[in-house]
Design a protein around this nucleic acid. Structure first.
Lengths: 203, 203
DNA sequence: AAATTTGTTAACCAAATGGTTAAACTAATT
DNA sequence: AATTAGTTTAACCATTTGGTTAACAAATTT
C-alpha cells in the first residue's frame, strides 16, 4: 500500500514522464519539461518520485514490462516455430505501430547504462528462449525447417521486427519515402516479415 | 585551406570527441570530459570548433561519411542482387565489428534531431537505391528471385545487418550469452545473414 | 629583432539544472 | 472546532555546464 491516497497526480506525472523520457532519453529529458507537460509544480515530481533517476526507472520498468511478458508468452506457448513467427510478427508490429518510441527508448537506455540489464534479468517475466531453442532443434531433426542456429534465427526475427521502428528516420531517408508511405510499409510488414522469415527457413 | 597551421591538436580533439559522443550521445556528452580525454584545456575545444553543436556535427558527419559511400558503391555496382547481399553483409558486419558504436550513434542522433537528415540528403554521397530497385524488378521478371517489394527487401537487409549492433546489450541478455560468445555470433553472421537472405528470396 | 599572428591556459561568467524547504492549502479524523 | 496527514506552491540553493576573456607563450612574418 502506498502512502499516497490519491494517485491521480502520480499518474499524470508518469504519463508526462513517459512521453518526455521516451522521446528525449534520460540525458535529454528535463524535469521542468516533465512538470510542464503534467501541468504541475516541479517540486511535485520529487514529492512523488524523489529523484529524476527513480522517475526514470519507473518509466523504464513500465515500458519493459509492457513488452516482455508478451514475448515470453509467445516464446513458451505450444505453437510451432512457424506459428510463433506469425504470432510474434503480427503482435509486435501492431503493438509498435501504436508505441513507436518504445523499442528505441529501451535499446538506447540499455546501451547507456548496461547495469540496467541485471535488474531486468532478475525480473520474473524476463523472456526465456530455452523452449524456443529446443523447438528449433526438434523441427530441424523432423525436417520441418532447414538447419539453422536457434540464436541466429531468434536474432533475425527480432531484427526484422524491431529495427524498422528503431531506425525509422534513417530508413525513411534511405528508401526516400514520407511519413505516411512509411506507415504503409510498416503495415505491410505484419505479413511480409513472417512470409519472408518462413520462406527463409522452410524446406 | 584551414586557418590552423598545426592540426595535431585538432585531431586529438576530434578523436576524443568521437569516443565521447559515440558512447554517450550529444545530450550525455560533456565538453569537460572531451577536453580531459584529449588532454587539453576546455577552451581549446571552442577555439577549434566554436561550440558543442559544431564539434558534434564534425563527429557526426565523419561517422556518416564513413558508412554511406561504401553502401552507395555496393548499391550501384554491376553485381547481381545475390552478390550485392553477400558483398554488403560481409563488408558491413566486418566494419561494424571494428566500430560497434557507430550505427547506434547515428540512429540515436537521427531520432533526436530529424532535421539532420535534410543536411545528409543534400550530401553528394547519400545512398541512392533506385538502381537496386530496378535490379530487383528485373530479377523478379527473370525469375531469379521470388516476388518481393524492393523496399521491403532493402529494409530486411539493413535490419539483419545493423540491428545486432544497435541492440547488442538487449540481445545479449535475451539470448543469454556473454560478450565473447556474442562476438562469435556476430562473426558467424557474416556468412549466416547472407545465406539466410538469399534463401529467403531465391527461387 | 620587432611586430604580428597563432596556440594555450587559468580564471571567470551567466544560464540551466536537479533538488530542497518552509509555508500554505485541503480534506479527512478526532 | 481542532487536529492531523497529505498535497501543492513559490522561492531558494548548490552544482554543473557551455562558453568567454584576458593574459601569456610560441611561432611566423616583416
Amino acid at each position: 500500500m502506498t502512502k499516497h491516497k490519491d494517485n491521480q497526480t502520480e499518474d499524470q506525472i508518469l504519463k508526462a514522464a513517459q512521453i518526455i523520457f521516451q522521446t528525449k532519453g534520460m540525458d535529454g529529458a528535463r524535469m521542468q519539461e516533465i512538470a510542464d507537460k503534467a501541468s504541475i509544480n516541479k517540486a511535485m515530481l520529487h514529492y512523488y518520485y524523489r529523484s529524476k533517476q527513480l522517475l526514470f526507472e519507473a518509466v523504464f520498468n513500465k515500458a519493459f514490462s509492457l513488452l516482455a511478458p508478451e514475448l515470453n508468452r509467445i516464446l513458451n506457448d505450444s505453437s510451432s516455430i512457424e506459428e510463433k513467427i506469425k504470432n510474434f510478427t503480427d503482435n509486435y508490429i501492431s503493438f509498435m505501430i501504436k508505441h513507436p518510441y518504445l523499442p528505441g527508448f529501451i535499446i538506447q537506455e540499455l546501451n547507456r547504462n548496461p547495469k540496467f540489464i541485471e535488474k531486468l534479468e532478475s525480473n520474473v517475466s524476463f523472456p526465456d528462449i530455452t523452449k524456443f531453442k529446443n523447438q528449433v532443434k526438434n523441427e530441424i531433426e523432423n525436417g520441418t525447417i532447414i538447419p539453422i542456429s536457434a540464436e541466429q534465427l531468434f536474432i533475425n526475427i527480432l531484427s526484422l521486427n524491431v529495427f524498422p521502428f528503431v531506425a525509422s528516420p534513417l530508413i525513411k531517408a534511405l528508401v526516400n519515402v514520407d511519413d505516411t508511405t512509411y506507415q504503409t510499409i510498416l503495415e505491410a510488414r505484419k505479413e511480409d516479415v513472417s512470409n519472408f522469415l518462413i520462406n527463409a527457413i522452410k524446406k
